[in-house]
């Protein structure tokens, strides 16, 4: 498990680098090398580190460990074929991490990030509706059962396409430099991450790398099915590059617009589920 955690962290950081590179190329810039995020994390790991004088010290430090712990747990859930309801729980708990990170420092910029994180709670709703839609087809929330269902009936990407679109939006909501990345917008410096630097930032980079890996892998497992590792990585890369394209050509939305779009998608999916309920009994 430890070696897989290290592997997932490495791939996640590499994906972040590729994400930045693709965005830069689409926008006509050379962009950083794809291993830039790995170098960043290593650099932060050896930088001088302290805790701001105004921070709630225990929470400031504790939240970094919580972030790493929940996404390591999420990776374990995926690998062990656990429940996607648990995966959904981890995704929601990440919201607490974002919020706690912003509140704990005392800085007005991080606080703005934390409040934006609360406002964008609508980003979780499409995932919940996705979970319910999948349950309609598979009658189970276990990832092992879902992949087994796809081996018999074909990928859910085709069978439950609207649910796949909703989950795609969920992943997009958590991508750096995306239209929904309001909590780390530059007008509030780095948002809720502003005051976490040095080793704390390195820890957060590791947690976010795991998050990217887990979300992309979950998308592949849930909507395409169980694949050999190299093929799964290729599928994840394709999904990532498509997300990078969206991020590159879409400006950052205002906080209330993000909520509106996510709520509209949720509403559309609820209609889809009602229709499913009527058709499938």
């Amino acid at each position: 498990m430890i070696e897989y955690l290290l592997f997932a962290t490495f791939i996640g950081l590499l994906f972040h680098g590729i994400h930045r590179k693709v965005i830069a190329r689409v926008q006509g810039r050379p962009g950083p090398p794809i291993w830039q995020e790995i170098l960043h994390t290593l650099k932060f790991s050896f930088k001088e580190t302290w805790i701001p004088k105004t921070a709630s010290q225990t929470l400031f430090v504790g939240i970094v460990f919580v972030a790493i712990a929940i996404w390591s747990g999420a990776l374990f859930i995926l690998l062990s074929g656990g429940s996607i309801l648990l995966l959904f729980a981890v995704y929601l708990l990440h919201k607490i991490v974002e919020h706690g990170m912003g509140l704990s420092t005392g800085s007005p910029y991080t606080k703005f990030g934390a409040i934006r994180s609360v406002i964008s709670a609508a980003s979780e709703l499409p995932l919940l509706v996705t979970v319910v839609a999948i349950y309609f087809f598979t009658r189970s929330l276990s990832i092992a059962d879902i992949t087994a269902y796809q081996e018999v009936n074909g990928p859910l990407l085709i069978i439950a396409f609207p649910a796949a679109v909703a989950m795609y939006l969920v992943i997009l909501s958590k991508m750096h430099y995306g239209p929904f990345s309001i909590i780390e917008a530059k007008e509030i410096v780095s948002g809720n991450m502003t005051e976490h630097f040095g080793v704390w930032r390195a820890g957060l980079e590791v947690a976010y790398a795991l998050k990217t890996y887990v979300l992309l892998y979950a998308f592949v497992l849930i909507f395409i099915g169980s694949l050999p590792l190299w093929l799964a990585l290729l599928a994840m890369l394709i999904v990532l590059v498509s997300l990078s394209f969206v991020c590159a050509v879409t400006p950052m939305l205002s906080p209330y617009d993000t909520v509106t779009i996510q709520s509209l998608v949720t509403g559309a999916l609820i209609i889809y589920i009602v229709i499913l309920g009527v058709v499938m009994g």
Partner: peptide, 12 residues
């Protein structure tokens, strides 16, 4: 965490 933490000092 609630039991062991002290609050932050908000900067205004």
């Amino acid at each position: 965490l609630v039991i062991v933490s002290r609050p932050e000092r908000q900067v205004d």
